[in-house]
Computed example of a mutant assay.
Amino acid sequence: MKQMIIRLMIAALAISLWVSCDQEKTIMYRQEAGVRFMYQAEDEYSFVDNYGETVHLYYITVATTGDSVDYERKVSIAVVENDTNYVNTARPEQYKLLEGVVPAGSFSGEVPVEIHCTPDMSDSSFVVNIKLVPNEDFPLAGFDNRYFELSMTNQLVKPKNWGNLAFYFGQQFSISWYRFILNVLNVSYIPYPSAQEGDEKWSYNQLLANAGKVKAALLQYNREHPNDPLRHEDGDYAGDEVKMP
């Protein structure tokens, strides 16, 4: 009788281990079929960065979980709806969500959003909240429940690389100061040396020379307005005098 009890206990343990391993395999399989937004959960695109452009393809980077596969996989996205915490102000004619791709053998991919410039973007920003949705390739798409907030405008916005540009133009930022810089240099954006592949780039010597032009223009402005030097007109430093290194 004692031996039978021991055998039953061993059998029960074996069944428990088998079920546990089967569940673990199921979880591993589900993890391999997941995709999520890789980087920040929000970004803003301004058509000012590409003067004359009316349609722009914005790419959101995504990452997969688990092993890579030897075939291309599709990534699907949709607008977040019926959630009061995420309000969409962009209209359907201002954007188009496209199907993304994770290349064969890769752990990451991109999902494009086609942005259309409209006249009212010149004085306003519009937001669309985007989510990853399951499909045959990624049944657990968006498993971390993170959304991506994309803003679109035709206004000047703070450059993402201002932390680098601040060495040349000062730590304090405002749209009015940035507009002054662009007008002096007659450009729509500042081509920093570490710009993305394919973008125009200035050398560090060019950047220093152009920063010198801006400083000369700032000094000239202040000489012409001795009682009213150039000041930041907006942002955290509104009212403060503009200073350059």
Rank of each mutant, 00 (worst) to 15 (best):
I6G: 01
M9F: 11
M9H: 10
I10Y: 04
I10V: 13
I15N: 01
W18G: 13
V19F: 08
I27G: 02
M28F: 00
Y29I: 13
E32D: 09
G34D: 11
Q40L: 08
E44L: 08
F47I: 10
F47A: 02
V48T: 13
D49R: 13
V55T: 09
Y59N: 12
T64F: 05
V69F: 00
E72G: 00
E72N: 10
S76N: 15
V87Q: 06
N88D: 01
A90Y: 00
E93G: 00
L97H: 03
E99G: 11
V102P: 00
S106L: 04
F107G: 05
V113E: 09
V113F: 12
H116P: 03
T118V: 14
T118F: 09
D120Q: 14
D123K: 14
D123C: 08
V127R: 08
V128R: 02
P139I: 11
G142E: 05
D144G: 01
D144Y: 11
N145M: 14
R146Q: 11
R146W: 01
Y147R: 02
Y147E: 05
F148N: 07
E149G: 05
L150K: 07
S151G: 09
S151V: 01
S151H: 09
T153S: 06
G163Q: 13
L165G: 01
A166H: 03
A166F: 11
F167V: 06
F169D: 00
S174L: 03
I175L: 13
F180T: 12
F180G: 05
I181S: 06
Y189E: 06
A195W: 04
Q196P: 13
E200S: 05
A209K: 14
K215F: 12
E224K: 10
D228H: 04
P229L: 13
P229W: 13
R231C: 13
Y237R: 07
Y237W: 15
G239N: 02
E241I: 15
E241F: 05
K243A: 10
